[in-house]
C-alpha cells in the first residue's frame, strides 16, 4: 500500500485556506497598524530619553522580546479569562470570560508582539537619520514635533520599509499560532477538514502554499514601495 497524493483533496484544501485569508489579514495587518502606533510612541519616548518612562519601556521591550509568541498568546488568553471572571462580578459588569472572543485575544496579543519589534524598527530608522538633520531643524527654531513630522520621519520611512515588510511577514506566519488558542484561521480550517480522512500532508501543504503566496505578495509590494520612496537619493554609496 503506497502513498498516494490526493490532488483533488489538496485543491479542495487550497480553496478552504483561501476562504480564511481575511482572518489572516485581520491577524497580521491590524497588529501591524496598532504595533506601528504603539511602537512609534515607544521609540520616540526612548529616543528623547523621557525620564523614567524610557527606562521602563526599554526593560519592557527586552522582557517581551524574550518570551515566545505562543506563550504570550496563551498567557494573555488565560489572564484575560481569569481576570474577567474575577473582576466582573465585583463591579456588577455583565461581562463574562465567555464573551471574550479568541480572535480579539489573538489580535491584542499579536499587536503587543508587533509593537515591541516595531519600536526597535522605528528607533533604528530614526537613528539612521544623520544628527545634522536634527540640528538643522532645531537651529531654524522648530520644536520636536514639527521636526519629527516634517524632516525626520520622511527620511526615516525609506529605511523602515524593508523592515516593516519583514515584520508583516513575521506577523502573517505568527498568526498561525493563534490556532492554538482556538482562533479559526487557515491552520485550524484545513486541519478540521483532514480530521475525517487523515490526509494531513495534503492539508498542511495547502495551508503552507497559501501562507507562502501571501508572503510573496508582501515582498513584491515592499520592493515596489522601496523603489518609489527612495526619491531623495542618499547621493552615493548604496
Amino acid at each position: 500500500m503506497g502513498f498516494q497524493f490526493d490532488s483533488a483533496f489538496f485543491v479542495y484544501e487550497l480553496i478552504v485556506a483561501i476562504k480564511y485569508i481575511p482572518v489572516v489579514l485581520l491577524l497580521s495587518v491590524v497588529p501591524l497598524a496598532v504595533g506601528m502606533i504603539l511602537g512609534s510612541a515607544i521609540a520616540v519616548v526612548r529616543l528623547f530619553k523621557v525620564r523614567g518612562l524610557a527606562q521602563f519601556l526599554a526593560a519592557l521591550v527586552i522582557f517581551l522580546r524574550g518570551v515566545p509568541l505562543l506563550l504570550q498568546l496563551t498567557i494573555l488568553y488565560l489572564a484575560l479569562h481569569l481576570g474577567v471572571d474575577a473582576v466582573a462580578p465585583k463591579y456588577g459588569l455583565a461581562l463574562s470570560s465567555k464573551d471574550i472572543s479568541y480572535t480579539l485575544v489573538a489580535v491584542i496579543g499579536l499587536s503587543i508582539h508587533a509593537a515591541v519589534y516595531l519600536s526597535e524598527v522605528v528607533r533604528t530608522a530614526l537613528q539612521s537619520v544623520p544628527s545634522g538633520q536634527y540640528e538643522a531643524a532645531y537651529s531654524v527654531g522648530m520644536n520636536s514635533r514639527e521636526m519629527l513630522y516634517r524632516i525626520i520621519l520622511p527620511q526615516a520611512l525609506p529605511v523602515a520599509i524593508p523592515l516593516l515588510g519583514s515584520n508583516l511577514i513575521g506577523l502573517i506566519k505568527g498568526s498561525a499560532i493563534a490556532s492554538l488558542i482556538s482562533v479559526v484561521e487557515i491552520v485550524n480550517a484545513t486541519l478540521f477538514e483532514a480530521n475525517s480522512n487523515y490526509k494531513f500532508l495534503e492539508a498542511y501543504l495547502a495551508a503552507a502554499l497559501i501562507y507562502w503566496a501571501l508572503c510573496v505578495l508582501v515582498e513584491r509590494i515592499v520592493a515596489v514601495l522601496e523603489a518609489r520612496v527612495s526619491v531623495y537619493g542618499k547621493g552615493g554609496v548604496v
Partner: peptide
C-alpha cells in the same frame, strides 16, 4: 553648518 545640514527631503 560645516556639513551644510540641508534638509535632505
Amino acid at each position: 553648518f560645516q556639513l551644510y545640514n540641508l534638509f535632505k527631503n
